[in-house]
Design a protein around this nucleic acid. Sequence first.
DNA 1: CGCTGGTTTGATTGTAATCAACCCTGGTGG
DNA 2: CCACCAGGGTTGATTACAATCAAACCAGCG
Lengths: 200, 200
Amino acid sequence: MQRLQAGRPIFHEGDAVRRVFMLASGSLKIYSLLADGRRQITGFMFPGDFLGVSVDEEYAFTAEALVHSELWWFTREAFDRFVEANPKVERELYRLAAHELAAAHSQMVLLGRKTAAERLASFFLSLVERQELVAGRSLAQFDLPMSRLDIADYLGLTKETVSRMLAQLRDRKLVRLVSQDRIEILDRDGLHEMAAGFGG
Amino acid sequence: MQRLQAGRPIFHEGDAVRRVFMLASGSLKIYSLLADGRRQITGFMFPGDFLGVSVDEEYAFTAEALVHSELWWFTREAFDRFVEANPKVERELYRLAAHELAAAHSQMVLLGRKTAAERLASFFLSLVERQELVAGRSLAQFDLPMSRLDIADYLGLTKETVSRMLAQLRDRKLVRLVSQDRIEILDRDGLHEMAAGFGG
DNA sequence: CGCTGGTTTGATTGTAATCAACCCTGGTGG
DNA sequence: CCACCAGGGTTGATTACAATCAAACCAGCG
């Protein structure tokens, strides 16, 4: 078990893969940097997600805690032995990877072809759906555990644009800001339309 | 075995997953569409790649032949039985999925944070590296089996911008157009710098 | 109560999209 | 064999969306 404060990195892009992690509580961001500092967050992780289950020798991205988080970990060797001994785990890992791949495809559509407002609407829906899955019931409100800058770097925008698009969704009465880091959905159908590209 | 002419779809987004395919020859594009016709190509496939190996009941994207292509296929049930009987295949499938996931991460960085010229340079390098892997040796030239529009829809640009950026890479003496659909690399280091974000 | 850092709002700029013409290439038929 | 045609590709002019630059606002905290 490993405890991490907000902002603490778990590992960096290029580090040798020595451990496999499972997020027990909290949330993480994973990202890559370009030479001049431009950053793309390629995913956020929530309890139950695995990290470092890879065939490569080096991590392909940096992972960092968003809030105070707890991780279970195994050495890579121990994890490999465990997988070897439990073939069902292998299938489950494959299932998880297929899921991640599907999510990556949606994110490529978002980054390649959606407008700023569509990106934010899509992001809110994926966040609330994720939190509903954990809660096991429909939710009207959800948390934003990451900063505006993190959201921008995930959506391929700037923090200013995120702020403006949030104001736009608010003005269109699709969402309400309960607080800085908590959103209430006022019109889920409208949000879905916006996310899918109808929200002219 | 299934033969496909250029432009023919193998399956559409939303179709029930009935078969698993392996591309034997040719090349494919896979893409998703937004409601108003905006298209994002999320990948190109080359001989040896698998399609439809998924845990979902529906294909998450459309797959279409770029050139005359040949595919081996199995029913999903036959494929599952085969995997069940050969645990090593499961590991190999996982290895392939992990690879695809890493590629998806790079593509997210490209779509979210790279400029038009950087995107095209990155694309050229990934294409030539792929063709070098098949050829088993370093290559100075490589093929572009897809149209400018396909390249644009893969890179999150328009065909006009792709054309302009190609002219720019040509004018900077990084590449040469052997023909409409064949490129010669004149300065690979320069292309790498451009792709990584140094090419001021 | 006054900082400090994140957030929002405002003004301006810049990159790529859009709209529009022209060019080339490969295929067809006279 | 060559002229014509069609469709993809290139180049040019203008526009638009989001980025950048800049200032004000606000919330949490010492």
